[in-house]
Structure formats: structure tokens, C-alpha cells
């Protein structure tokens, strides 16, 4: 993979106590039927979950359900070639689409006891742990931007934000954080 992140400047992330940028990662968008999903996730050592809006995670790799035939695959940056080769071998001869979106978006982590209320300043979903449990993930909106929201722990969320939206999203969160932290 050409490491554009090293050459290009990272997106501006507004500082706030509850939000921190996550390191660059390998991101692949996979589309295909359930057989494609099952073999792809199997090849990556991930459990094949068909339940809507659920993520599967194991040893640093994750597959996030985005739609009935769509998964966002995340892995550490250094595993790009390995993951790509595993997937190409597992999916050879099957109709699918695999797109590298590693540099299209960046990740933010929102954590702390106020993480839910902070996100709810711009996100209309019910983020109570009963309605949005750990392991749940979905595309949604945060203020005027589209994000992928994934609850990784009771008080921690992983956000996938498109690069060009990152300054906006982080500023919205920084502003909201000022309201929440006295």
C-alpha cells in the first residue's frame, strides 16, 4: 500500500478531553452475499455475524455490519497486504466487490463517562447501553456529517469519519464537550 498518510498531512482534529484520533488503519469495504461474507470473515479469523448492526472482532481485526450485503473490515495498518491476500484467496471466483477505503476516512475515539451524552449532542440514536449495546455498529449522522458509530466498550465509541468531515466532526464534538465538562 502506498502510505499516503505519511506524505499527506492528517486531517485537523480539534482537541477535546473526550475525543482522540486513532492511528491509521487498513480499511476495506466488502460487498457480497452471505456466502462471500462467511468465507471472507472466516479467512480473517472473524466470526460471521449475520445480525444487523453488529461487529465481530478478534486479534485487532474487525468486521462491522453496515448493510445486509456490506461489511467494513478494519485491521492494523501493517496488515494491509496480508489481509488483502487472504481475502483475494478466499473470494476468488465469487461475485463480490472489495474496495480499499483506508485513506478515505479516519477514526476517532470518544470515551469517558460522558461519551454517550457527548455523541447525543449531534447523533439522534438512542445510545443507552440497552438500546445500543457494546458491539453494536451502524452508519448514522453526527450533526451534518455521516459517520460510522461503533460501541467498543460501555463508555467508549469508535467513530469512522470521512477525512474531509473530520475537522467538522471534531469541532462539533469539542464544542459539545465544553458544554459537558465544567
Amino acid at each position: 500500500m502506498r502510505d499516503l498518510s505519511a506524505v499527506r498531512q492528517g486531517p485537523y482534529i480539534a482537541a477535546s478531553p473526550l475525543v482522540r484520533p486513532l492511528p491509521p488503519a487498513t480499511r476495506l469495504l466488502l460487498r457480497g452475499n452471505s456466502e462471500v461474507m462467511a468465507s471472507a470473515l472466516g479467512a480473517l479469523g472473524l466470526e460471521f455475524v449475520e445480525t444487523a448492526c453488529r461487529a465481530a472482532s478478534a486479534s485487532g481485526r474487525s468486521a462491522l455490519w453496515l448493510g445486509p450485503d456490506e461489511r467494513l473490515l478494519l485491521a492494523p495498518q501493517g496488515q494491509y497486504s496480508e489481509v488483502f491476500e487472504l481475502l483475494c484467496a478466499a473470494l476468488a471466483g465469487r461475485a463480490h466487490s472489495l474496495v480499499d477505503v483506508s485513506h478515505r476516512q479516519c477514526a476517532l475515539e470518544v470515551s469517558g463517562p460522558q461519551a454517550g451524552p457527548l455523541l447525543n449532542c449531534g447523533c439522534p440514536l438512542d445510545l443507552d447501553p440497552a438500546a445500543f449495546p457494546v458491539g453494536m455498529c451502524t452508519r448514522t449522522v453526527l450533526a451534518k456529517a455521516e459517520i460510522v458509530l461503533w460501541r467498543t466498550a460501555e463508555r467508549s465509541f469508535h467513530l469512522e469519519v470521512w477525512r474531509s468531515f473530520a475537522p467538522y466532526v471534531s469541532k462539533v464534538l469539542a464544542l459539545a464537550a465544553r458544554e459537558l465538562t465544567p
Binding site: 456490506e70 451502524t138 448514522t140
Partner: peptide, 8 residues
């Protein structure tokens, strides 16, 4: 269409 969701 669930545009900002599953896209379906």
C-alpha cells in the same frame, strides 16, 4: 431509503 444506515 435508509441512506445514513444500511443504505437499503
Amino acid at each position: 431509503r435508509h441512506t445514513h444506515g444500511c443504505g437499503r
